[in-house]
Design a protein around this nucleic acid. Structure first.
Lengths: 342, 342
DNA sequence: CAACCTCTTGGTAGCGCTGTCAATATCGGT
DNA sequence: ACCGATATTGACAGCGCTACCAAGAGGTTG
């Protein structure tokens, strides 16, 4: 016959209930829905829990209730500081709440994303935050079938799975090009690395703006699948100069590339912005302190993370956010690197 | 009388066992210790699990086994790209393993760290990775009492709680100053932001090197508790110049400050390195592509994260790592910003 | 005063898995 | 052929909590 398992000295809900003089179920309710208790018992349970230093066993809770208090977050990269900002927003929003984060790295692969999604959903997360709007068809199907709030972040588009928060990369890119056109630039190059879906849409925006201005020329575009870096910015800019020596401006899909381009210009003694105007993307902190300061497209990454997490929590608490799709917009920060005197 | 709860259509271990024609307990063993099964049953359980698409319920597992497969990670900041690299290493090491990460942000507060530690330990994590060697006395006590592998990362010191991986910030800083002294610099400034314990030890290293060279002067030191940034680097450098106009070099506790200093020099038309030599810390990617390239102290952050996670896993699997303390070292990357012609 | 409601509390069973033994099968040695 | 040792498998109960239902307390209404 099985012997009784050695029970460790952990404080269980039963102990708290006994000390408070209530049934375990009442004590349980105190933690999930305190308003359901009379003021009297509420205070008794609270002081008993505090006295014993009770910490609920989340595994038991998850098993019994068939759900967890974990919000799954799927992002494509940990290195990219863009996501660091988003994550900070998410963690800040969840700070002090009952929810915690389970983070997974899709490494820019939607197949990997689908695999991780299945893994997450099997554990019945309280909510889900996923990056972008390009999921596999299967991913979409399983996400739509699942009964938990889901927020797609980083960009907006038609047909959200559930909720969505981001901005239009197409419009943002187009606005950056418009600004360069306003400055009198005509031969505007495009530098892109790690061509993920959002960067692709920035390229689409560039192409649209240039075509509308009747200035489109495929030789002005240099892209690579390599992960982005400052050094790569210099390399790509050199490539661009080689295939289109007459450029008068460059739009970089992120600020690292822009900084690399700026350094490469310095190395070649090309004067920014007089000979080459530069506009970056993301508006990282350094853009406003480089020499010359770098124009960039400001995006609200921290707010994106913060709001995404808040939207999940609100939905879980029954206060469904007003609109399922939130456009956080962007703004073109016009600085020295694109200030052409005409 | 309580009615039977509606059981959802989830595949349980029982179903797998039934299909495989074995007892549930045997099926359970397959997932935890496949070698204990005969080859025959092993194959039967495996194919049954695959056929049904079985995914284990982690909550039930955790509840029954009194332990989880979660490794808790406590870091002081999500924004700091130093930790992004460490995290990437940790996630990479755990990729494909049964373990997952629970991340928490201490915001550079050891009290917050202690609170999070209690929260983590109540859930019986498989292991723990904590930042630095400056924990509260209570934190140390509870960590020493806990029966799971613990790795302190980012720096090394005496008396590890369990294991330790990092490098000496004191030595690294001292080596950077030695290099500047070798270059003939005499009035070497120190720029520090967010004076966390590791940055403090870099200051100690600076002080030690300067004192040994009989060149120490408190006016050469500018520090602030503000979080670091490129812009702040420019500001601090300006402050330093104001209180010690005769400096011939600056050691910055990180590369962001160094880049900000470089930009500020450019703004003031001070030639780097001829008038001012600059050395940063961390060797971020951009240091090798700025103009001039920035000297910096390379630290092995990715390896630190990767090894820390590997050490936890090895310990869990009974293969205790050889030494409990691993010194990953550092190297002074000598580049243009500190190359003085004498 | 009965009928009815709302608020609060409790009893019972079970979530899906694994720790602890016990039982059986297998094998080599004497 | 018998014994003990080793591999393999199974039975049972229980991990700590909550879903579900029921029931008592207190108030309101016609």
């Amino acid at each position: 016959m099985a012997r009784k398992r050695i029970t460790p000295g952990n404080i269980r809900l039963t102990e708290v209930a006994k000390l408070a003089g209530v049934s375990p179920i009442t004590a349980s309710r105190f933690f999930r829905n305190p308003e359901a208790l009379s003021i009297n018992k509420r205070a008794r349970v609270e002081s008993a829990a505090r006295e014993l230093g009770y910490v609920p066993n989340l595994a038991a809770r998850a098993l019994a209730s068939q759900r967890t208090e974990v919000i799954g977050v799927l992002i494509p990269s940990l290195t990219n500081n863009v996501f660091a900002d988003v994550l900070r927003g998410i963690y800040d929003a969840l700070d002090g709440s009952r929810y915690s984060i389970q983070l997974a790295n899709t490494r820019y692969s939607i197949l990997q994303e689908e695999r991780l999604l299945r893994l997450f959903l099997a554990q019945k997360p309280a909510g889900l935050i996923v990056t972008g709007i390009n999921q596999t068809a299967d991913s979409r199907v399983i996400m739509e079938a699942v009964d938990c709030p889901i927020v797609q972040i980083m960009e907006i588009g038609p047909a959200p799975i559930d909720m969505m928060i981001g901005f239009s990369h197409f419009d943002a890119s187009k606005a950056a090009i418009s600004h360069l056109l306003d400055q009198g630039c005509r031969r505007i190059g495009f530098l892109g690395a790690r061509m993920d879906p959002r960067v692709q849409r920035r390229l689409d925006g560039y192409r649209s703006a240039m075509t509308e201005a009747a200035l489109f020329d495929p030789r002005l575009i240099v892209t690579t699948a390599l992960p982005t870096s400052v050094t790569l910015g210099g390399t790509l800019f050199a490539d661009l100069l080689a295939q289109a020596p007459d450029i008068d401006a460059v739009f970089c899909v992120n600020d690292d590339l822009a900084l690399g381009t700026l350094f490469e210009c310095k190395r070649r003694h090309m004067v920014v912005p007089d000979q080459i105007a530069i506009v970056g993307f993301n508006d990282l902190e350094f853009t406003s302190s480089s020499v010359p300061t770098l124009s960039s497209v400001r995006t609200n990454r921290y707010e994106m993370g913060r709001n995404a997490a808040a939207m999940v929590i609100e939905t879980l608490e029954g206060r469904r956010p007003a609109g399922p799709v939130v456009d956080l917009g962007f703004s073109v920060m016009k600085r020295q690197s694109s200030a052409r005197r005409r």
